[in-house]
Nucleic acid binder design. Structure first.
Lengths: 216, 216
DNA sequence: AGTATTTTGTGAAAAATTTCACATTTCATT
DNA sequence: AATGAAATGTGAAATTTTTCACAAAATACT
């Protein structure tokens, strides 16, 4: 399996499928899914074929079966426990983010150095940062979200990994380095906006100069 | 210019450059930047060459000049005004997000239907949603962040675009459709975690079965 | 000044990803 | 049962993206 984007698309198909299911559909065709997530129908079929997902010629795919299979592939057939390190603005927003819960992701606890943030009896408790290592070990947590200042992020990541964390979703604007056997995905909000700004500018230039489409 | 990833890398180079500059460096080589963001040195040079950025053979690139050029390409040579529609957990976290301000992105106001969220005199004011259209026109805003529930997202997007918004950064877990002349980038937090979960599982399987690396 | 070394810039090659195109199967209709 | 229409599944082609490899230039050193 070599195609990284494919996995993201599988998730997108799944979201689309839930929506179609809610609308009362029972089966879908590759072009429905393609339309829904903005790719070619052949891309959908190729993606499925990579994972041995098959439908019926002329009959399409059965939505329930397809959702189940996708959840299985994506590891979403079980509930996953996640901790959040850094309970500033972003961190605490994520702690309250409903979609995680709905999607079988359980935020077990938050951790922060700032005593003002601590709330041991809250719905989702917030503990001092030195309690994170024992917590990970005791609860066998494998996933963490890092939302600390960039200066602290790598250090926190190293600590989490040494405690047993395998996957990190990092919101600090820094590219985390991970040893073999663990993995970090980075979400950089400023970079996302910057990227958008670039493409908006390209758009504006096109408007002025519809010819020379492809120049900086 | 056909390479979408290239733009993201330019932003990453820039982040790395600021860090290097803070450490006292004056010039960099393609392998420094490559190392910093995790790509091949030839990738760095190819990216630069696509935008006509050149250094000196054996002398590398001058950091200040390079940062300036990258900011220019990325449209970050001016301050950009952004509004946030939807001031729930995510929306209000973003309103307080410091990195935006530091990076020349000015959050001008928030908008929400919930009167409890309104705060017209706050540092960054929050207005009723029906004030968004006049606000956009009056202040010539081109960029918006959408952080409303998924059910409302497309409708909000259409409204914003009709008011003059050109670029949308969308946090609702739905793929926004945009007419020609405007653009939306989507950040789906659950999808990011799901993706991470998949790759953590792949990692674990590799550990058990270091051979059959490439199977679902 | 001359030589050796380092680093860029870029065509060409390789690799990855997407799209095409069509044989094959299934379903619907008569 | 036979016919026609609609969809899948997948090699092959096309496209995109990355990496290689090396000539040319700039710097450092003697």
């Amino acid at each position: 399996m070599k195609n990284r984007n494919c996995i993201i698309r599988l998730s997108r198909y799944k979201t689309a499928l839930y929506r179609l299911k809610a609308l009362g559909f029972v089966k879908v065709f590759s072009d429905n899914l393609a339309e829904a997530i903005g790719v070619m129908p052949s891309q959908v079929r190729k993606d499925f074929s990579l994972f041995g997902i098959s439908g019926k010629k002329r009959g399409g795919y059965h939505i329930d079966a397809l959702i189940e299979r996708l959840n299985e592939i994506l590891g979403k057939d079980k509930v996953h426990t996640v901790i959040i390190v850094g309970c500033g603005h972003i961190g605490s927003a994520l702690m309250k983010y409903r979609k995680f819960e709905d999607g079988g992701i359980k935020i077990a606890a938050g951790f922060d150095i700032d005593p003002a943030k601590h709330a041991q009896d809250a719905d989702i408790p917030v503990f001092p940062i030195d309690r994170v290592k024992p917590f990970i070990k005791e609860h066998n947590v494998e996933l963490a979200i890092i939302a600390v200042p960039d200066i602290a992020a790598q250090q926190v990541a190293d600590m989490l990994i040494s405690a047993g964390i395998k996957g990190i979703l990092n919101f600090a604007p820094i590219r985390l380095r991970c040893p073999e056997g663990s993995i970090a995905h980075n979400i950089n909000l400023e970079l996302e906006l910057e990227n958008l700004i670039y493409f908006v500018n390209v758009l504006k230039k096109k408007r002025v100069n519809p010819d020379e489409t492809e120049n900086a």
